[in-house]
Amino acid sequence: MAELLNNSGLFFALLGAAFATFMAGIGSSIGVGKAGVAAAGVLSEQPDLFGKVLIFQLLPATQGIYGLLVGFLILSNVGLLGGGVEDISLLKGSLYFAASLPIAFAGFFSAIHQSKCSVAGIGTVVKKPDQMGKALILPAMVETYAILALLISILAVNGINGVQV
């Protein structure tokens, strides 16, 4: 039993990588999907706005990438990407899991809420294409919190790498 517990460190590390990737990924796909629906509606009337609405659709896509980034950093730290798997203690694996939480949750929710701003921004651009710059800033405000979460996740994953437990 003790041995099983000790070996489950890798499992928790992997769980963390998976969690960061899929939670943020789900959030982004919901967000990009919502914005995409609004963008497609615009295209039926004003196809020349494609370039502009595409940018709005892509805004909530970044959270998924942040999740991927953290997931990748964890996989790389525990040696799952070639180079042989290290022995990971249960505590260390759980730490990786904890480190994935900020981007998993902040990414999930911020992508969804950012997409609402994006949809509204698409509405703005349809009526006033020259107000693109301002309309773009509003969804970007939401993303701030995903970036802050990403920062903590990255710093934590990097920090855990050096911890001897």
Binding site: T62, I65, Y66, L69, T144, I147, L148, L150, L151, I154
Partner: peptide, 11 residues
């Protein structure tokens, strides 16, 4: 807020 310089650079 300027921590985004680090985060996006790392990304």
């Amino acid at each position: 807020s300027y921590s985004r310089l680090l985060a996006l650079g790392l990304a």
